[in-house]
Design a protein around this nucleic acid. Structure first.
Length: 143
DNA sequence: GCCAACGTTGGC
DNA sequence: GCCAACGTTGGC
């Protein structure tokens, strides 16, 4: 079981929209970057991830679960691009801001810090636990 | 609005 | 295969 982080501009796809899709989830579509595609290919059904809003918000606001492994991106006509489906699991009670993340030495190696442009990222188990604690998730989703 | 970082494209 | 030019992303 691995952990991930999904990044989105609220204007493009917001946490509210994600929650409206409910337990069946929705395609994490529109990714047109090889590195991000490879990250999604490594995801397995049941894996958890954070939902991070970039742009003006810059904070982790929710937890999602992978409900379908990598498959063709329905918004892509070339057949080159893939996506997973993710479903909202819960809010993060106390959204964790990028500022807080950058201020914590234990999180300094996060991809979010080192390569902020990658839109889908791996998160280590240690980072996951730490971020869940910071976000006020007393019962961190895990396997 | 600016700029740094990164990825992609295309000429050589 | 190299690298300059360009476009995009995202933090500030």
């Amino acid at each position: 079981m691995n952990y991930w982080l999904f990044k989105s501009e609220p204007d493009a796809w917001s946490w509210d929209q994600q929650k409206k899709e409910g337990a069946k989830g929705a395609e994490w579509d529109g990714v047109r970057n090889y590195q991000a595609r490879n990250v999604m290919r490594a995801m397995r059904k049941g894996d958890f991830g954070f939902f991070y809003q970039s742009g003006e918000e810059r904070r982790i606001v929710g937890v999602v679960k992978v409900v379908a492994e990598a498959h063709k991106d329905s918004t892509d006509g070339t057949g080159m691009w893939e996506c997973v489906d993710v479903a909202a699991v819960s809010d993060v009670p106390r959204a964790v801001t990028l500022t807080e993340i950058k201020g914590d030495p234990r999180l300094k190696d996060m991809v979010l810090v080192k390569n902020s442009r990658l839109s889908v990222q791996p998160v280590t188990a240690a980072e996951w636990r730490k971020l869940c604690a910071m976000g006020g998730l007393s019962n961190p989703p895990s396997c």
